[in-house]
Each structure stands twice: as structure tokens, then as C-alpha cells.
């Protein structure tokens, strides 16, 4: 778990992403408690409000929920929700870019599909 202070990406966003990865990897199993904002702020040496901002992103995305008086927990089905989100992002980041690049290089749909098949075989 690491925060890159020089990165263009805001710290609270990095926190949210790291926590998400931990849910995905199983480090934070569903329906178990995640570290508090205090623990997170201490680990990364950041202001607790920043940690909270990152956590709230995950609450809004239905990944984490708050149990009053107890703390924050990973919501049931969070892992699948994250996978879905990542798949959507994959489409935007890779597929859209791939198609635009293929178009620029005048690669036809058939050629592209053949390339993908080839990739799977190797």
C-alpha cells in the first residue's frame, strides 16, 4: 500500500483505489471491518479528512457501509461490483483506445479479430 504524493491523482482517490484493490484481492473480506480513518491516516501520514474523503467515495459506490458506533465494513457483493466497474473501465481504457488506434492504422474488424484470436493462442 503506497501513496504517491507527487502523482497528479489526488490522494483521496489513491486511498479509495488502494482500499478497492484490498477488497478485490480478498485482504478485506466482505462483511468484515476495514481499518478506521485514524488507522489509514496514520499509515499514510495524511490528514484524517483526506482518508475520510476516500472512504466516502467507496460508501457512495456501495463498496463500504458504516455501522453506527462500530465502524466501517465491506458490503456484501462489493467484490463483484468492483469487478464490474473495472470491466467498464477496461472497455473505456483499452477497447475504445484499441479501436481508435486500429482505425488510424486502417486495420479492419476481421483483421483485428484475427489478431485477438492469435493472442489467445500464444
Amino acid at each position: 500500500m503506497e501513496i504517491h504524493f507527487e502523482s497528479e491523482k489526488p490522494i483521496y482517490l489513491q486511498i479509495a483505489e488502494q482500499l478497492e484493490e484490498a477488497v478485490l484481492s480478498g485482504a478485506f473480506p466482505e462483511e468484515t471491518q476495514i481499518p478506521s480513518t485514524t488507522e489509514i491516516s496514520i499509515t499514510f501520514k495524511i490528514n484524517p479528512a483526506t482518508a475520510l474523503k476516500g472512504i466516502n467515495l467507496l460508501v457512495d459506490a456501495d463498496i463500504i457501509y458504516k455501522k453506527r458506533g462500530l465502524g466501517m465494513f465491506v458490503k456484501a457483493g462489493a467484490k463483484n461490483r468492483i469487478l464490474e466497474q473495472h470491466k467498464q473501465a477496461f472497455y473505456q481504457t483499452y477497447i475504445v483506445t484499441l479501436l481508435s488506434e486500429a482505425k488510424a492504422l486502417k486495420i479492419s474488424k476481421a483483421e483485428l479479430l484475427e489478431m485477438i484470436e492469435r493472442g489467445y493462442e500464444s
Binding site: 478506521s36 491516516s41 496514520i42
Partner: peptide, 10 residues
């Protein structure tokens, strides 16, 4: 120090 500070602060 930071650990303790953030702990006290929270």
C-alpha cells in the same frame, strides 16, 4: 510522533 499526533487528533 505523527502516529501519536493523529491518534490524539482523531
Amino acid at each position: 510522533f505523527y502516529q501519536e499526533l493523529l491518534s490524539v487528533f482523531s
